[in-house]
């Protein structure tokens, strides 16, 4: 499935929640945060850390069969839940598609404030880092081709 199709799917899922009621949406993100498979302990290193002022994020990327596979973790559950959503959208995709993809679907699911630089939770830097990995893998694959 394409990145935009996955993002539409996520938006459709969030539309099931009562828009007047923030609790349900947040509970869903929290539960996602609780269920996200942890990053392999060997990748939870200082090298992979993205330090936000408020919470920490660890991000690792592998390149498998022309697709980038991301795994990540955070010490805060809400951040981790957001990571789960971002990874669902970007992981197992081609570098070129990742580079072109947008994150404005986060606004549409009512979680925009968590992807704001003022939150300083590490997510904005994480999205940048996701793209950096894609860029690195795309130039690597061009060299090989």
């Amino acid at each position: 499935m394409s990145i935009s199709a996955i993002q539409e799917e996520i938006v459709a899922e969030f539309e099931l929640f009562d828009p007047e009621n923030w609790d349900e949406r947040y509970q869903y993100v929290i539960d996602l945060g609780k269920s996200l498979p942890l990053i392999d302990a060997k990748y939870k290193t200082d090298e992979n850390i993205i330090k936000g002022c408020q919470s920490k994020v660890w991000l690792h990327a592998d390149y498998e069969g022309g697709k980038v596979v991301y795994s990540a973790d955070s010490d805060a559950i809400l951040t981790k839940g957001l990571i789960a959503i971002l990874i669902r959208s970007f992981s197992h995709q081609a570098p070129k598609d990742i580079l072109e993809a947008k994150t404005d679907f986060i606004d549409r699911i009512g979680l925009k404030e968590h992807l704001s630089p003022t939150r300083a939770n590490g997510l904005v830097s994480m999205v940048k880092q996701i793209k950096m990995y894609a860029l690195a893998f795309s130039s690597k694959s061009e060299q090989q081709a």
Partner: peptide, 21 residues
């Protein structure tokens, strides 16, 4: 509970606190 999570949920309830270092 991570302070960021607690602060973010309190914010949704209209309560302003500071979280972090």
């Amino acid at each position: 509970v991570h302070p960021y999570d607690l602060g973010a949920l309190l914010d949704k309830m209209g309560i302003a606190v500071r979280t972090g270092h």
